[in-house]
Nucleic acid binder design. Structure first.
Lengths: 222, 222
DNA sequence: ACCTGAACACCGTTCAAGT
DNA sequence: ACCTGAACACCGTTCAAGT
């Protein structure tokens, strides 16, 4: 059993099956998630990937919940602090918010996993800190800053849910399909037609976020 | 085997183990979800609940995915159309949005299940239609109405994610706990203190939604 | 038409045992 | 210290078989 490896693939640079450490396990787990989503992260698949018995995972990490948290933490480290752009307060706050949004889009599988595990703050804390810093510069402080942050994060989370839904869902559940079956007197035909189409999530995000940030900044002067 | 029932509980008014039909299965499934969340909806538990073998479920409904959709459809029927309040366009649109939000809070388990299955539109279509109708009255039509709807739904979804997270998640993952460990020069001490506290999700929802609806209605006159 | 039992291919997790 | 094998209690799903 010591001689045979599952398949011939030489994946990571590290040796496997002996000298395996916690970091190797987490790296492999993150890779598994990025390739196949959170559902692909099973103890058995991960063990197979590492050429090791499932119980070995339990020795290095605790159980699956702890593994997920470790994966999220690793991704959090990798999310290098991105730069904030813009001159006005409005622009800079929006830019910091957009950074979180774009990052989540770029790493959707890990982000979805974190959301599911209730660990989004763990994942985004550095980026959120930057956002709050920009709010401070804009004069939003204390409880107002906290509420502003939560508000902005809610909008981001909402758009992520909306965007994620598009791919993996059967056609019969798409809004476009369902609206095509609606026939209501209260709605004009032009609106009904529009509802059968798709929105550009990026443009919509920008517009919505602008309204929310404007609302937040408007409260400062009171 | 025909004589013994799992336990002595007489649950629904209908007979069980014979004369069981599709509707009974869906009702029991919905009840299971409302009690224990989506994870509690397993074919085997549902079968046990009905005093029947798991394979029977497959005969009446298809597989688990179809069962979930059936459950969501049933809940959609039950969500009686709620009344829209307010006089101004701003108030009425917000009221229609709030109806969706409140409904989701009241039936969080089914709503979470629907979200997970990508079937929120299936669940909310009647309430969404009412919302669009109010947008029409406010002069928002066609593509603008569609985008406004999606925008508003994103905000609702975001606040749901934010609110759901509060209960079932370990303390070490709560924003309050994580922010307590942050020490960043860019943040004032009063803001750091505030970040350790919780926001009132309802108030925050109202304020954020007001900004978004204002933004939507402001575009009408252009 | 309606339901069961056995079976398959998966899970997470524990525990005694090996080196 | 690090790893394995066997086992337990769960999943969803299929399929031949019973009435």
């Amino acid at each position: 059993m010591t001689e045979t490896t599952q398949d011939g693939s030489a994946r990571t640079s590290s040796t496997r099956h002996q000298g395996l450490d916690r970091d190797d396990v987490i790296d492999a787990a993150l890779e598994l998630v990025e390739r196949g989503g959170g559902d692909a992260l099973t103890m058995r698949k991960l063990a197979a990937e590492l050429g090791v018995s499932p119980t070995t995972i339990y020795w290095h990490i605790g159980n699956r919940d702890e593994l997920v948290l470790a994966v999220v933490r690793r991704q959090a480290e990798r999310q290098a602090a991105t730069r904030v752009r813009g001159r006005s307060a409005q622009e800079r706050v929006s830019s910091a918010a957009r950074n979180i949004w774009r990052n989540a889009l770029a790493h959707r599988n890990v982000t979805a996993l974190a959301t599911q595990a209730g660990a989004t703050t763990l994942l985004e804390l550095p980026l959120e800190t930057t956002l709050v810093a920009e709010l401070e510069v804009a004069g939003v402080r204390g409880v107002a800053a906290r509420d502003a942050l939560r508000s902005i994060l809610a909008v981001i989370a909402g758009f992520l849910v909306l965007t994620w839904r598009r791919d993996d869902v059967p056609d019969e559940l798409h809004p476009a399909t369902l609206w095509a079956q609606v026939d209501d007197d209260r709605l004009s035909s032009q609106t009904l037609t529009a509802l059968k189409g798709r929105s550009d999530p990026d443009k919509l995000f920008e517009r919505t976020m602008r309204s929310v940030v404007e609302g937040i900044l408007a409260d400062v002067d009171r």
